[in-house]
């Protein structure tokens, strides 16, 4: 059951005790067990954010390089590999967003100066509802329905 070692100086006192100690171990089954898995997957979404951020940078760069460059890029997005990649990103980042919204309310202190913290349900409705509204708005704008 015991898993790999933690750093050998983890939780070590500044002056060693009188007896020899065995080195500390990492939490059991890290990162496979329930909660750790969600946390690590959430962290791994950082790589997806990197990819999407730089992809969007490339998209805007193409837009600044003229019509031909832009059209070539948009056409390129029809490549099945790109489509699969985008679908993967949509799914992982939607999950990322929902986990983030779920963990968000308790990060807010009961009061900041004179401002009182609204109840959890406010955050959950505002974040999830806002996510839905903003998503519909973005879809409407990018598909030419709005603006």
């Amino acid at each position: 059951m015991m898993t790999r070692r933690a750093r050998v100086d983890s939780m070590k006192p500044s002056t060693p005790g009188p007896t020899r100690t065995a080195p500390p171990r990492m939490p059991d089954n890290f990162p496979g067990r329930g909660n750790y898995l969600g946390y690590i997957t959430f962290g791994l979404c950082g790589f997806v954010l990197y990819a999407v951020g730089f992809l969007m940078l490339r998209t805007i760069w193409a837009l600044g390089s003229g019509e031909r460059e832009w059209d070539r890029l948009i056409e390129g997005f029809q490549n099945p590999v790109y489509i699969l990649f985008h679908v993967f990103c949509v799914i992982s980042l939607t999950w990322f967003a929902l986990r983030f919204f779920g963990l968000f309310p308790k990060t807010q202190p009961p009061n900041i100066g004179r401002f009182k913290r609204p109840p959890d349900i406010f955050f959950l409705v505002a974040l999830n509802g806002g996510f839905l509204a903003v998503s519909l708005l973005v879809i409407a704008v990018l598909s030419g329905v709005l603006l």
């Binding site: 954010l49 980042l93 939607t94 519909l136 973005v138």
Partner: peptide
């Protein structure tokens, strides 16, 4: 990222 990326990626 959480608010804008999923819908942006979905369309584009």
């Amino acid at each position: 990222g959480a608010f804008l990326y999923p819908a942006y990626l979905l369309v584009i």
